[in-house]
Amino acid sequence: MSEDDTSGDDDRGLTERLRERRVTLWTLIVPPTVWAVHFLFCYLWVAVSCAKQGGFARFPIAFVAGTILALGIIVASGAIAFVQSRTPGDPPPHDESTGIDRTRFLATATLLLAGLSFVAVLFTAAPALMLTDCR
């Protein structure tokens, strides 16, 4: 058995394992929740720093780390949703009240929300990283 085959098995295994994860409304709101937490973190970190020490946040690197962490979670959530949105089984158009169609629908919605949240986190982080001033 060649190495390629092994990794192929692993990939399939991973895909299968991802598809077996439950998709619920709770997993659907992971990307927008990360966006909200990142948004609050950026605003509160600046507001508290400016109010308490009168200068811009002491650790601007925290914005970079927080943004990378948030983007990482959103990308992971989006990747899982992408795999789940392609769960095979039922025939198209995937709008029946079956388990697989429900999974595909929720996963597609999660994927779209992940895309939106990704851009939103970037747009929140850009001013925080470029306008390092309290005014």
């Binding site: 851009v119 970037l122 747009f123 850009a126 001013p127 470029m130 306008l131 001033d133 005014r135």
Partner: peptide, 13 residues
């Protein structure tokens, strides 16, 4: 995104 990144430096106080 391009407009935001391009114009942010001009907004710097």
């Amino acid at each position: 995104a391009a407009l935001l990144i391009g114009t942010l430096p001009a907004m710097r106080p």
